[in-house]
């Protein structure tokens, strides 16, 4: 990267004033005023704060270097022309071309659709299954620990490894799943070579792996619900479903929110499963945003465009999560209120 990239000038910020005009203007204005130091205020609290900052600075610098700088820099790259040259990476000229290219690309729209749809479906199924498993586990008297440990095996496997296992299972020639389908269907599907089975197969692998994670989190929430609440509901004549909806679910709100957030963040960035199983195929059926970004960045070395995909994906998932929290909170709140109203 150049020492001082020429795009970081006031001229650009102020809408393209000619550099000479700008310097003339600035010299007319005189030097900028530095903020004045606050008089006095040397209380113990200030001193403590200063010491605190002193202690955390090294850690904060590391965080800034490995997290904040790369993220900010990739946002910058997504708005610029990036070229790899002998003298290093050249970042020049503010432009929105990367974003217009991205938005105008049907591949991006398809990838977005796939990623959003895949996230919604897998997370919903994982949540439902995970909650069911957790409810079941909570009622178990004996063997809960063992079952929990067994359940966690899929979760503890590295996805690239478990994806390879699924690849064997789905193999069109000798795969066990293909064989099973062959028993009931005249013509077993080419699972990873046909769009709908490929997406379903991938979702199944994802659900298999992450349902235990959701179950564990939900279980943690379940065991915290006081017995008395169940007893009270029972005395009021609430059936199992009403109890679940009006007592258990509101109480689970915080843990479910956490589980969903974790899952959405991960599912939206889905990369390893399609990378191993389908390479985004058949055609472009399982091409997620992350696969698209990887290809632009690391295969095509089209860094500006890749950064635009990465930035927009990051932004989308953050917005999605905020929206989810808002909707979820109001939903569960109203359910809880209804529950209280019903109990009264």
């Amino acid at each position: 990267m150049r020492a001082t990239p020429d795009f970081v000038t006031d001229a650009h910020r102020k809408g393209g004033v000619h550099p000479t005009a700008r310097s003339a203007k600035r010299s007319g204005k005189g030097p900028r005023r530095a903020p004045e130091p606050r008089p006095g205020g040397k209380s113990i609290r200030d001193r403590q704060a200063r010491t605190g900052w002193l202690y955390t600075t090294p850690a904060l610098l590391v965080v800034a270097a490995v997290t904040i700088f790369p993220v900010v820099y990739s946002v910058v790259m997504s708005f610029t022309k990036v070229r790899l040259t002998h003298a290093g990476t050249q970042v020049t000229d503010w432009t929105t071309a990367n974003y217009t290219t991205m938005l105008g690309s049907s591949a991006w729209r398809e990838a977005l659709l796939f990623t959003v749809g895949y996230t919604l479906v897998t997370v919903a199924v994982e949540l439902a299954l995970g909650t069911a498993v957790a409810v079941l586990l909570e009622r178990l008297e004996a063997g809960r620990g063992w079952l929990l440990a067994l359940l966690l095996i899929p979760w503890s496997l590295i996805t690239v490894v478990s994806a390879q296992l699924w690849d064997y299972l789905y193999d069109a020639t000798y795969g066990a799943v293909t064989w099973l389908f062959g028993l009931v269907l005249a013509e077993p599907p080419v699972i990873l070579g046909t769009p709908v089975p490929a997406i379903t197969g991938m979702a199944a692998a994802d659900i298999w792996k992450t349902t235990p994670f959701v179950a564990v989190i939900v279980l943690a929430g379940l065991v915290r619900i006081p017995r008395e609440q169940y007893e009270a509901a029972e005395m009021d004549g609430a059936n199992a479903w009403t109890t679940f909806r009006r007592i258990v679910l509101p109480a689970l709100r915080p843990v479910v929110a956490v589980a969903v957030l974790f899952r959405v963040l991960q599912a939206f960035g889905i990369f390893d499963l399609p990378f191993v199983l389908t390479q985004g195929g058949p055609g472009t059926a399982t091409q997620s945003l992350a696969i698209l970004g990887y290809r632009a960045l690391f295969q095509d070395l089209n860094i500006g465009l890749g950064a635009a995909i990465a930035t927009s994906t990051g932004l989308l998932v953050v917005l999605g999560c905020l929206l989810f929290l808002r909707v979820f909170r109001s939903q569960v709140d109203s359910a809880a209120e209804a529950g209280e109203g019903g109990a009264a």
Binding site: V71, Q266, A290, A307, A310, G314
Partner: peptide, 19 residues
């Protein structure tokens, strides 16, 4: 590159360092 959030960091990893 796979992580949605981390993808940006990967972009920077590729292009970040000068010679």
């Amino acid at each position: 590159a796979g992580g949605a959030g981390a993808a940006g960091a990967a972009a920077a990893a590729l292009a970040g360092c000068g010679p």
